[in-house]
Amino acid sequence: MKITIKRYHPHFDPPSIDMEYEVPENMTLLEALHHIKQTKDRTLSFASMCRSGVCGSCAVKVNGKEQLACEYRAQDGDYIEPLSVVEVIRDLIVDFNASLDTLQRASAYPLQMHSGMSEDEERLVERQSDCILCHSCYSSCPVFETKSSFLGPFALTRAYRYVVDSREEEKRAHIDAVIENGIWDCTLCGNCTEVCPQGIDPKSDILMLQSMASRFGYVNPNLSGFGSFGLEF
């Protein structure tokens, strides 16, 4: 069977071309990529580590949708390209430095914590803390097209994870950190939730953050024109 990979190398002219490769059936996409590199094309560049869906290095787009290469079974005719939104370095390798910075900007870390929590309290953060920072959600988010400074889904989900953590004492400061370029910029399109390989639901976490922010007295700026029903006369 054949798969097509969008290749990219900025020093070449043209920098981007599609290349088709023959690969054996019944392989994960990551196995297929390794197969190509080992036997056909040493210049093919991609990232991987764990091959078991926990290190977050191998996400790519398959037929337009984000997938972990190590958890996706390659199919005949698949079109493989690098993640969107993040900068492409070479072939399927992308830059994570700028995007990982959103964690700092969103204060997505414990601010003031004590130890000890109950079973029920742990369950509140269980799903969110399954995040492997694979960037699938980030790549799928339409907001970045118009606003590159948006904090994005994984940083907001992680911020939420610390807000609802019963050990965290500084809830308010977490909310303060996700207002600007954060929760109100999300269009609630649900793309991120759709593509997350870990079954995390950043959209609903963002909704939760919005309602918490309202309780802390923040107002959704998108609703401020509410009196005119959003219509302009």
């Binding site: 870390y109 414990p110 914590m113 004590h114 130890s115 000890g116 929590m117 109950s118 079973e119 309290e121 742990e122 953060v125 269980e126 803390s129 610390y162 953590d165 050990r167 965290e168």
Partner: peptide
């Protein structure tokens, strides 16, 4: 473990 818990590790819990 106490340290890891105090800095946020979401260990599974049993009987709290």
């Amino acid at each position: 473990i106490e340290w890891l818990d105090s800095i946020g590790t979401p260990f599974s819990r049993q009987d709290n």
